[in-house]
């Protein structure tokens, strides 16, 4: 039996600002992890990644990151992805700063 597929989100950095972004189900790029499309099927994930990588004038370095469903939408699984949703831990900069504004 094959192992169950760990759901994914498509993430990248925005070309102009470098900020972390996520691909949504309606083909937008969101700055918020919980707005991302949670992809539960491997073949679909590959399609979405191709779609993302093709947007060369908007995004850099698109990849699939493990995620899980949460009450407000997808949540990161790995700590690296969790840091990417917030920003650094030594200063209140990055997404945590913009979220507070």
């Amino acid at each position: 039996m094959s192992r169950p597929y760990i759901p994914k989100v498509v993430t990248a950095n925005a070309l102009l600002e470098g900020d972390v972004i996520y691909l949504t189900a309606d083909d937008r790029w969101s700055r918020q992890h919980h707005e991302a499309e949670l992809i539960e099927d491997e073949a679909h994930a590959q399609m979405r990644l191709l779609h993302a990588a093709a947007q060369k004038s908007k995004v850099v370095g698109a990849y699939l990151a493990d995620a899980k469903a949460g009450p407000n939408g997808p949540e990161p699984v790995h700590f690296r992805e969790a840091f990417r949703t917030r920003g650094p831990s030594n200063y209140f900069h990055g997404k945590q700063e913009t979220a507070a504004q």
Partner: peptide, 8 residues
């Protein structure tokens, strides 16, 4: 110029 975790 590098691209890092949160920004350039």
């Amino acid at each position: 110029l590098y691209l890092q975790l949160h920004a350039y």
